[in-house]
Every structure is written in structure tokens, then in C-alpha cells.
Design a protein around this nucleic acid. Structure first.
Lengths: 108, 108
DNA sequence: CGTACTACTATACAATATACTATACTGGTT
DNA sequence: AACCAGTATAGTATATTGTATAGTAGTACG
């Protein structure tokens, strides 16, 4: 998979997952990896950045299956950010589609 | 528009435009800008990179409306590259869609 | 002489990949 | 009981790479 395509998209996916429930980093990796190849070393920096930028808040919770989990909760600002990113994403993917549209037609 | 989303996507758009006709840098900017905001300082590096990587060949052609235009022609390798990128793009955008799907449903 | 057309470059910025380190618990073997 | 492998979990440093910004410069035309 072209690496560059993922730029920004992974953050959008993380935000989308947090929209309806608090999740911890490792579970985000598991969830997203079902659809897009992503590694831990990518998710944690995203979460740190989101926290630094005031989009999410985090809290620790004990686990019976390993070390304590750090859950992330999307706050109001994060939700706005998600909506804004989603709009951009839709705009871009629509733009790409429009630009490539007709290529097949003209081809023959 | 989120800058990061465009990573890679602009190259895909350039390749798509060159699939059926040779074009020069400035015209690529004009064509793509109709759908996605892109500047000259972004297009020329992409073209240089594509040429360096053996995806396109270029040639000069005089113009009556300004300096000579450098046209770019997509070669066989470039066409393969486009198909490969397009597949990746479709895979990613499908992945993002799948991940975000259901978010609205769960919401209420 | 100003404006549009066209090519091109240098620098900075930002997100991801890679390749780690480190800790906690579980289950099996000795 | 002690050890060890494996899984779960959090985290970091460095390199790579593509785009944005802000230019320079040259040609044609009014």
C-alpha cells in the first residue's frame, strides 16, 4: 500500500472510532488493522498529538489481561475536528474521483 | 483542506491526466485545480520525480503564448504505476469508508 | 510597461514506517 | 516454586517523503 495515501486518513479513522466510545491505543490498532494496515508506532503518536491539541482526554484503567490501559475520550473540540476532517476527506475523494472520471471513456 | 490528505493523491491525479494525452506542467495545474487546490510548486516536483523514476518522458514544444512548454508523456512503466496507485487508492478509500461506516448508526 | 503564461527551486513542515524499549499478566515446563 | 515464552499494552527516536509557501526568471502581448 502506498504509504503517502494514509497521511491524515489514519487520524480520521482514529477519530471515527472514538466518536461513540472510549478506546485504548492497542484496541484502536486492532480495530483499524482489520481494514487498513497500521502499526502501533503510528497510532500512539497520533493519540499523543490529539491529546496535545486538546481533541481528546485520556485516563488509565486497570486490565486483567495486561498492563493498565490508557483510554482516550473524544471531547467537543475533537468531535468538531472529526467533522471538519471528514468533510475534507469527502471533498478530496470526490475530487479525485471527478478528475479520474472519464479517463476510461476517453481511453478507447 | 487538510494538507496531509493530498499526499500521494496529487500524483495519482497527475498520472490520471497523462494517461490519454501529453500535457505540460502549467496545464496540469489548471486542470487539477478545477477539482483540488494545487499549486505550481507542488506539480513541478511531482513531474520531476516521475521523470527521475522513469514513469514519464518529457519534451519541449514551442508556444505562441509564452515560453516553450515542457510536455510529459506517460510510458509503459508509468501506466503500470498508475494502475497500482489507483488500486491502492481504491483500497484505502474503501477501508476508510468501512471503518467510518456504522458510526452514524451507533450514534443514537 | 504590466499582465498572463510557463518553468523551476529552496526551505519548512507534518504524518507515517520502522525498529525498537519496557511493563504486566498467563500458562506451561522443569 | 522458579522460570520462560507469549500476548497485551504503552511508548519513543529516527528517517523518509510529499506538499505548501514563497519565491526567481523568461516569453509574448496589449
Amino acid at each position: 500500500m502506498n504509504v503517502q495515501f494514509k497521511k491524515g486518513a489514519l487520524e480520521l479513522c482514529v477519530l471515527g472510532q472514538l466518536l461513540n466510545q472510549d478506546l485504548y491505543g492497542y484496541s484502536l490498532v486492532e480495530r483499524i488493522t482489520r481494514f487498513i494496515d497500521i502499526s502501533e508506532g503510528t497510532v500512539y503518536p497520533i493519540l499523543r498529538r490529539l491529546e496535545k491539541d486538546g481533541m481528546v482526554e485520556s485516563y488509565l484503567k486497570e486490565s486483567t489481561e495486561g498492563p493498565a490501559r490508557r483510554y482516550y475520550r473524544l471531547n467537543a473540540r475533537g468531535k468538531e475536528h472529526f467533522q471538519s476532517m471528514l468533510a475534507d476527506w469527502n471533498e478530496l475523494s470526490q475530487g479525485v474521483e471527478d478528475i479520474l472520471k472519464g479517463v476510461e471513456n476517453e481511453k478507447k
